[in-house]
Design a protein around this nucleic acid. Sequence first.
DNA 1: TGTTAGCACTTATTAGGGGAGAGTGCTAAA
DNA 2: TTTAGCACTCTCCCCTAATAAGTGCTAACA
Lengths: 349, 349
Amino acid sequence: MGNVNLDERTKKVLYAVVESYIEKPEPVGSRYIMKKYGFDVCSATIRNIMSDLEDEGFLYQPHTSAGRLPTDKAYRFYVDYIFEQCLKNQSEEIKKYIESLTKKLRKLRNNMNSLFLETTNSLSSVTRYLGLALLPETDKTALHRVDFIKFKEDYVIAVVVNDKGIVKNKIIKAYPEITQQELNKLAEFLNETYQGKAIDEIREDLFIRLKREKLFWDKLIEKILKICQQALYFTRENVYISGFYNIMHLPDFSSDIEKLREIAKTIQDRHLLIKLFDSISEEEEIKIIIGEENPMEEFRNLSIIASPYREKNKPLGLIALVGPKRMDYTKAIMFVREFANLLTNTLSK
Amino acid sequence: MGNVNLDERTKKVLYAVVESYIEKPEPVGSRYIMKKYGFDVCSATIRNIMSDLEDEGFLYQPHTSAGRLPTDKAYRFYVDYIFEQCLKNQSEEIKKYIESLTKKLRKLRNNMNSLFLETTNSLSSVTRYLGLALLPETDKTALHRVDFIKFKEDYVIAVVVNDKGIVKNKIIKAYPEITQQELNKLAEFLNETYQGKAIDEIREDLFIRLKREKLFWDKLIEKILKICQQALYFTRENVYISGFYNIMHLPDFSSDIEKLREIAKTIQDRHLLIKLFDSISEEEEIKIIIGEENPMEEFRNLSIIASPYREKNKPLGLIALVGPKRMDYTKAIMFVREFANLLTNTLSK
DNA sequence: TGTTAGCACTTATTAGGGGAGAGTGCTAAA
DNA sequence: TTTAGCACTCTCCCCTAATAAGTGCTAACA
């Protein structure tokens, strides 16, 4: 593995090929590169270099006597190359855009749903790629309040509000004898004992109680504790998706609708997206996944730029951009980073 | 307007043309019709009839010397023609499918979200068109319970559960002095007074109270009543969409992606869909809207089959199928009807 | 040894022509 | 009113030729 040892000039050529192809999705020729990037060697030399790059697996030809196209390895090289600069430089234009958006989002600070909807929409419409966002994992947030509502004989609706103001509800099958009054007391107990504690820890704690007190108390306690546990068990499910239509007209897909269909099918299935997100570490500032690097088959000819948003340095969730491998990475990286920051700031008030 | 006065034979030809075109999207020729439908006149006669039908606006030619294609008017004729039979006949196949689905859905009876998700998914995957469903309008359902939760100084989260077990929440800006205890009392008051009453009526009633008591009480009451009113104000927003990818490969769209993009854009914007649904009366058993008949421009080259599901004869919401005008109407109508019935039955327990 | 110029070769793309096929419209006869 | 016949129109497909882009290779060059 590794970038072998490419000399400076070779790197410049490789960079030029990738950049050119991102600009215009056509096989890149040696003469074109030479002229556009002002190499003062002749096209034959570039040709030799490109041939070497092909041997190294950075480029390939769609057919003999055609120009070259970048492989995933080339994209990876390109991204590694521009990455640093992306983080340093800040375009004035982006800054302004983010500023105006900040005001808009600040107003939605207390309504997570609208906040994330608006964020995903904006991210997609400004980049013209597919925008994704994942709400903070309810499990990891702190309990603000829980309420139980008896429903239809033998059901209980648990309403859980976390410290982000996100309201979740679960319908739990319970035994019929339990009354609303008892449920109120139960909720009161939970609220008093656990408000402000992380939800997954509460569940843990309840589990320990269950084990311990089972021996001393009757079945009732067991049942009640089970209700509580169920009430506080959440799988991640809130994914926001925006702008599929933005990627539909890209030349990368316009040739065959099948690819687009695959994507449409994939993004309809929230579980798949959550699996995708789960596979992305929330540690790195910005994670870039190119084509084959993707752990999930469904995204193998797409690229993903993801970044976590945080609160007090703790990652809460992710926002991401999905587009063709032939993506404008500079723009994408800059925007994803700014959007993640924006969310971080907005949530930290 | 009206179907002019077509004689039997002409009707049969028109029917045949539409049916043929639905089967295979190619211009339909006179000889083809004659042979396939066993007309015992020669093709020239059919040709004359088709020419007449063109004059009446039922058919058109993509170019001289090509076969004919149906216009919206022809589809309308066709649908009116088959409609009766669709309602009478019941294919054994569909019956079986619905039966097996019934069991599946019955288990989800108490979880509206899953129920509607599953319904829309099934409807789309069995018909291969785009499936839509609209949750019961919260406004028109009865209040089961309301809870207020103080959040972050000056916000109140109102959690409203209706008699369908649908949980809605609203974040309301309130004045900071109000305490959780006061909110609890307020909720208690509302629950005692209004449980089981229609939510829009409650709002109405609160409005009257507000007007009447404003004169006698202080600002506080006004504020509190306003919180209640806000808590109970819902715009319709829960639309379930499934199977966009199902319509992507249809020959009707494969020629130009732009059409598909339009659709993708439209269905992403929930408000547009709600506007669409709002324009569909919930009185008719089954509403069929073909192409230009559509009140909304975005759907002008699509057809929509919609049907309300009910509870005790009161329409609660709609499910619908969206597909190309060249749709398999028989199948679509049958399934939409069965699915609406299925929902009606499931909700009525 | 790396670089350049030149040239033959490959392949995709485009345009044009011709024939086949499908289907119509019209006319005249039944 | 229906039919048979026929000329006409248009699309579609195949074939060919020309064009253009770009490569790979070789031999000369610095």
